[in-house]
Design a protein around this nucleic acid. Sequence first.
DNA 1: TTCATTTGACCAGC
DNA 2: GCTGGTCAAATGAA
Length: 309
Amino acid sequence: MMESSWPENDRKRRMVKELVQGQECASQLRYLLNEDKENDGSINIEDLVVKVQKSFINSLIILNNGEFDEVSQIPTNSQLDSPCWDSRKSDDSGESIKSSKLKDRRGCYKRRKCSRSWTSETPNLIDDGLAWRKYGQKVILNAKYPRNYFRCTHRHDQGCQAKKQVQRIEEDPPKYRTMYYGYHSCKALLKPSQLLLDSTSNDSSILLRFDTNITNKQYHDDFVFQSSSPKEEHKDVVIIPSDDMIHDQSASSDYIISPDSTNFDHVTLLSYDHGDVISGQTTSTHSFDMGVIVESDDFVHDIFEFEFN
DNA sequence: TTCATTTGACCAGC
DNA sequence: GCTGGTCAAATGAA
């Protein structure tokens, strides 16, 4: 069943959330790679890449007005790459077929025209962190390698309509083209071991690190970071540009950090400005209902790292 | 036993 | 009639 388009606000919020999560992972990745930090293995670099990729995937899909089974982004050329999806066909065919006592009417479905897709090409097969189940493979005319068809594992139990096609297009260097269709509406797609946060932080605190560049001035909505800690599951931390920022984009940037539904007493600013550590600089808060104001003269390029405890 | 993959068949669209 | 997307039985893996 196809879902209708999201309300604009909801769509925007979802997209921002996806991008913010991706950016957070990218920042983590940069932190590990560029600053030559020791990684004790608690943070899996490959998992971070996966999460960044997932962020892009979902953002691009959301960008297409939330059309779950028909999206476009990169204008795929090709009719070669313009498969037509219609998950409803299985409802019209598969189930009814069973009851109609026709034993083998496999492939009885209705293809739909004009479905567009967006595509990514990678030098290797990257696990995008989503749960896919292969349901077909097809030799494609004039193609050296077969095309593989995947649908979301949770298609039946959660009605997730996401699909993708993967095809190797070059051998040396190896190159794979992945075409995505539909939005992943299912839950629990990522491995639980993927922690966004620094696992060295103590159990009672949450470490949040982000690059304010992500909070681009063009966005005036709340920014929601989903973070986690070893003891607690997920907490949404809302980053709210101050009124000055909203109304005057040239104004100095204040951010209101408001952990949502948490009971933290303090926010400690551990570092900012590309890793220049200001240890122990604690920004207390009267009430997290009101948030914490963090001042910065150059918010665009700052990297903030907070600890909630 | 359950779940995922493989693979040949079926069928819509061109 | 050809091509590509999907189904579902058979098979394999855990």
